[in-house]
Design a protein around this nucleic acid. Sequence first.
DNA 1: GATGAATGAGCCTTCATTCAT
DNA 2: AATGAATGAAGGCTCATTCAT
Lengths: 202, 202, 202, 202
Amino acid sequence: MARPKSIQTGTILEAARKVFMRDGYQACTARIAREAGVSEGSLFKHFKSKANLFLAAMEVEAGGTAWEERLMAGVGKGDPRKALESAGIHLLEQLRLTLPRLMMVNASGVTIPNHDLPGEIPHPIQKMEVLSRYFTAETRAGRLAMASPRIQAHLFLGALAHYAWCETLFGYRSATPAVYVKTLVDTLLRAAVTLKKREAPK
Amino acid sequence: MARPKSIQTGTILEAARKVFMRDGYQACTARIAREAGVSEGSLFKHFKSKANLFLAAMEVEAGGTAWEERLMAGVGKGDPRKALESAGIHLLEQLRLTLPRLMMVNASGVTIPNHDLPGEIPHPIQKMEVLSRYFTAETRAGRLAMASPRIQAHLFLGALAHYAWCETLFGYRSATPAVYVKTLVDTLLRAAVTLKKREAPK
Amino acid sequence: MARPKSIQTGTILEAARKVFMRDGYQACTARIAREAGVSEGSLFKHFKSKANLFLAAMEVEAGGTAWEERLMAGVGKGDPRKALESAGIHLLEQLRLTLPRLMMVNASGVTIPNHDLPGEIPHPIQKMEVLSRYFTAETRAGRLAMASPRIQAHLFLGALAHYAWCETLFGYRSATPAVYVKTLVDTLLRAAVTLKKREAPK
Amino acid sequence: MARPKSIQTGTILEAARKVFMRDGYQACTARIAREAGVSEGSLFKHFKSKANLFLAAMEVEAGGTAWEERLMAGVGKGDPRKALESAGIHLLEQLRLTLPRLMMVNASGVTIPNHDLPGEIPHPIQKMEVLSRYFTAETRAGRLAMASPRIQAHLFLGALAHYAWCETLFGYRSATPAVYVKTLVDTLLRAAVTLKKREAPK
DNA sequence: GATGAATGAGCCTTCATTCAT
DNA sequence: AATGAATGAAGGCTCATTCAT
């Protein structure tokens, strides 16, 4: 039996993340190795190439689909406002992690190997789909009135994403996350409810 | 009396933009020079360094403030829906140019020399301010009812930005720009109007 | 545990010396690397920059101070002629190494980092001081008669330095080193002795 | 008739000298042009190449042969001490100009085109020859007693050269030029005279 | 003749990657 | 498995030189 691995992949990834986030993709591997407390050789034993390491470091685990299930489970019952707010908070949290990395990858010029993500739909869009399904379902259930759920979903996620974006890029916040999400949900629902109210009398 | 200038700075910037957007900041200057049909030496005669060229290429002229004036001029008169849609279309157009470049700069690891942008407020946030002022003004004029105009502005711009973002990153569009903006404005106004209607009876 | 060092710093320095002496400071590092049988990258691993390498290559170890001690030890005893000839031969040998390098450094335009030689007195002048002290001591001992030992020291070293200089620059020798030194010492001593003889009768 | 030359070659040479002396051969032509108040193009109209300009700038006009003639004219008559001191002062003056430039050229790695100086004997050596002839002549005339005039000449010039050298390189002076030369001549003559005196009694 | 814009070869230096322990 | 010495390809940048007025 050879000697056991004494280097944690996680340690490397953490260091890589930190350095890449600070210096961009042109951060040099030597610095990452130093920051991780590991020899440069080991870096390349654990990850075939710098690009690989970069992608691995920028990868963000899906974060579970619990929120999706919770959201969809609430269709037809409970308070949509609460359901949406809960989902919004969760999404915002996740976007704060996801977006900067996505941005890094996109700006790095590194071409993502297709065989790793075979035709996979990018996360942000997947999320939009989920929201869209929710809106559609509630509309069908007669609890919301939305003319174009898909666009509304885009809009919803967009507002969240932009919040995260402004925060990481400029350190700007128009409100706390909670308030922001609340206002967002409120706006959407008001618009949806109105539609319903108006249509109802007819 | 000397040889006349035969290289347009614009030509270089265009090429640089193209290459940087494709390959990231690590695009090599040789390629940019070739793409611009210019010698590498000339690149550095026109821009002191690669970083300088990069920033110049990513810089996006404000694009005029006509839309701001038009928007604010409409306060109290005319149809807010039309005013917002017009502004929205314009902003979306601009964001499609601005955002990717902003992202590039941020992810490049190039530190922006402070003396160039002395405490300047980043464009996207400036725009949010304008929108916020508009919402506030219309609310004061009694034509809209918004509890927190600043957040609504954030939300409005966020939806637009995310549209541009999804388009450039994933080639995804939930709708045409016109329809998207229309829906966005509609949502906002419905929510705002509702508020007004409800309060009115009281 | 890691790959053992296989490059001797001395090997690089030797090659650098050879090339720099032939081509001047503008010798290219690639050639030095080739001449040393080493990759260009290794050059810069061992010496931070070309200037560093250059200075290190031109640096000439003091060569010991044995001659100084021997010279000063002979004050008052033994034959001054022999002592001076021995010192002269030694100095000439050393100057042949030192002067060309000193010249190179001075003409290279490379600014020597101060922290390396903090106010250090340049070698040739140090040597002049030693000689000066010797002449003074022997004069005090009544074995030589020199009106201005310091100038005589300058003169002595000057004659040696110029011999080395003419040899390296023009390949010119008015005599073999031994004969040259002998004549030089003879000239100095004759002048010194004369003085004594003349004064003695008084 | 074309327009008359309005650029003085002398102006360029002066500037070149200044810059080359400060920065070594790697001084860039642009700076020389600027310092000379001339366009870079003009530099190359006046001198085929940088190396040419460099050599021209480092070239030092012979400075006349008046001193030689004066020296040789004094053979057999007048005070040798005065003649040698006068020649020494003159030579020292000239060496102060010559040596640094010679050093520059030698360290530059620029190979002097042979067809420009076809087999020409370098100045310092020419001078040694003149001195050597003088010493020989005076010895023949019975006014000096030198066993090896050529070596003594080397020694004489060497002492002068080293003075100039120490001055330019280290800013070191053991005495004023006048005193230094005086001491040098004194030393040589004492040695020579002694010889004569001693031999005479025999 | 004088200018300075344009050029492109070449150089120093970095850095991802490999290799010998 | 881990190390860090060694590598060499590549890139940013300079600068001598040419060219079009």
